[in-house]
Design a protein around this nucleic acid. Structure first.
Lengths: 143, 143
DNA sequence: CTCAATGCAAACTATTTGCATTCGA
DNA sequence: TCGAATGCAAATAGTTTGCATTGAG
């Protein structure tokens, strides 16, 4: 089931409503590889859809996270970011501390070891966050 | 070189000053296994040392992070936390999303794989963050 | 003495909320 | 029609800063 369907299903089950704003936000949000903060997405949306307010964008992103099609990220720059989430495939991040470049990676080996660690502590993992901070190729050349 | 020395050395080299407040904060901060937010540490300090202000605690924690004896954490509860840092030994966290329990773990195997991932992307890692969120033993029993 | 540090209060930033109005089902 | 959603503005929460005063070197 794709993310649009997951969202629609969630809305239906909870008795919520599917407004044009939500549709617009969902489309733009999913159709990007960015890691938007509320503000960034709001500014981007505003160009084409001046009627969408900041609070709506914010509440909608929260809703996406709630229904599982987005995850909240915090890279330490003081802004919460959101990214579209695939149920089946988790990824983590390399973050360039100089230019802000974000590279995604997946590492099944790490995921597996994580499970072992959790098991040792009788911990039941719901989700995780794994970020490597440093200099990207370009920045470390210039540095 | 222990963390107190690292701090003193940093202060000396930068021409800063070693005040009694900083000494107090450093002592209490290092002598704990907690992951303090500015507010928590401030409240704790205030009991014994009513003269220390919030801003001083905050600036001092930032200073600790700056000189490398503390690291900033963000577990998504909206508060920045600080923990004493050992140069030689890095650890990561299991965070219980229900009761807030924090367990530390180290996994050399993961560290090694991380290095490989970074190398693949010509990334130079400065530091990283790795957190597993879920239910601790106690909470998953009750849940 | 000099300049960094402190403590207070005020400013800022990101996020969240109250409420009158709009709009989907 | 009814209640959820919106948009605005105002409130919150956490963090940071300006400034007069204090105090370390």
């Amino acid at each position: 089931m794709d993310r649009v369907s997951v969202f629609n299903e969630y809305v239906r089950q909870k008795g919520l409503k599917n407004t044009s704003q939500r549709e617009t936000i969902l489309t733009v949000f999913l159709d990007s590889t960015s890691h938007y903060s509320t503000e960034e997405l709001y500014l981007k949306l505003r160009k084409e859809h001046p009627k969408i307010g900041y609070a709506t964008v914010h509440r909608t992103l929260k809703l996406f996270a709630e229904c599982g099609i987005a995850s909240e990220l915090n890279f330490g720059d003081g802004q919460t970011r959101f990214e579209p989430l695939n149920q089946d495939q988790h990824h983590d991040h390399l973050v360039c501390t100089q230019c802000g470049l974000i590279i995604e990676f997946t590492e099944p080996r790490i995921e597996k070891i994580q499970e072992q660690v959790a098991a040792q502590h009788k911990f039941k993992i719901e989700n995780h966050r794994h970020e490597l901070y440093g200099l990207c190729a370009r920045c470390s050349k210039q540095g």
